[in-house]
Simulated scan of single mutants.
Amino acid sequence: MNPTVVRLAFSSLLGRARSLGLLALPLVLLAVCLLARLAGGEPQSSDGTLGRAVLSGLGLAVVVPLLALLVAAQLLGNEMDDGTIAYLLSKPIPRWHIVVSKLVAAITTTLLLGAVSMALASLILDHTDPGKALGWAVGAAVASVAYSALFLALSSMTKHSVVWGLMYLLVWEGALATLLEGISWLSIRSWSTRIAGWAGDMSVISADSAPLGYAWVASGVVLVAGTVWAAYRLRGLSITGDD
Results as ranks from 00 to 15, higher is better:
residue 1 M to W: 06
residue 2 N to W: 00
residue 4 T to A: 12
residue 5 V to K: 01
residue 5 V to A: 02
residue 5 V to Y: 03
residue 5 V to S: 02
residue 5 V to P: 01
residue 6 V to D: 04
residue 7 R to P: 06
residue 8 L to I: 10
residue 9 A to P: 00
residue 9 A to K: 00
residue 10 F to Y: 12
residue 12 S to Y: 08
residue 13 L to N: 04
residue 17 A to N: 14
residue 21 G to N: 01
residue 31 A to Y: 11
residue 32 V to Q: 09
residue 36 A to M: 12
residue 38 L to C: 03
residue 38 L to W: 09
residue 39 A to N: 12
residue 40 G to K: 04
residue 41 G to N: 00
residue 42 E to A: 11
residue 43 P to M: 03
residue 45 S to G: 13
residue 46 S to A: 15
residue 49 T to H: 13
residue 52 R to I: 13
residue 52 R to L: 12
residue 53 A to D: 13
residue 54 V to M: 14
residue 55 L to R: 05
residue 58 L to K: 02
residue 59 G to W: 02
residue 60 L to C: 05
residue 64 V to N: 08
residue 67 L to V: 06
residue 69 L to T: 01
residue 70 L to I: 08
residue 71 V to I: 11
residue 72 A to E: 04
residue 72 A to K: 04
residue 81 D to N: 14
residue 82 D to H: 12
residue 84 T to I: 08
residue 85 I to R: 01
residue 87 Y to T: 09
residue 87 Y to N: 10
residue 89 L to H: 02
residue 89 L to C: 04
residue 91 K to G: 12
residue 97 H to S: 14
residue 97 H to N: 13
residue 98 I to Y: 01
residue 99 V to R: 01
residue 100 V to R: 11
residue 101 S to Q: 00
residue 101 S to E: 04
residue 102 K to M: 07
residue 103 L to K: 05
residue 104 V to H: 14
residue 108 T to A: 15
residue 109 T to L: 03
residue 110 T to W: 04
residue 110 T to K: 02
residue 111 L to H: 09
residue 113 L to R: 08
residue 115 A to E: 05
residue 123 L to F: 11
residue 123 L to S: 11
residue 124 I to L: 12
residue 127 H to S: 14
residue 130 P to T: 03
residue 132 K to S: 06
residue 132 K to I: 08
residue 142 V to N: 07
residue 143 A to D: 11
residue 145 V to T: 07
residue 146 A to H: 02
residue 150 L to Y: 04
residue 150 L to W: 00
residue 151 F to G: 03
residue 151 F to T: 01
residue 155 S to H: 07
residue 156 S to I: 02
residue 156 S to F: 02
residue 157 M to C: 14
residue 163 V to T: 10
residue 163 V to Q: 08
residue 164 W to D: 07
residue 168 Y to R: 10
residue 175 A to Y: 07
residue 175 A to M: 10
residue 177 A to I: 09
residue 177 A to W: 04
residue 178 T to W: 14
residue 183 I to W: 06
residue 183 I to T: 13
residue 190 S to Q: 08
residue 191 W to D: 01
residue 193 T to S: 11
residue 195 I to N: 00
residue 195 I to R: 04
residue 195 I to E: 05
residue 196 A to F: 07
residue 204 V to H: 09
residue 206 S to G: 14
residue 207 A to G: 13
residue 212 L to R: 07
residue 213 G to S: 07
residue 223 L to T: 10
residue 225 A to D: 12
residue 226 G to T: 07
residue 228 V to N: 06
residue 230 A to F: 00
residue 230 A to N: 01
residue 230 A to L: 03
residue 230 A to P: 02
residue 234 L to G: 00
residue 236 G to V: 12
residue 239 I to T: 15
residue 241 G to W: 10
residue 243 D to Q: 15
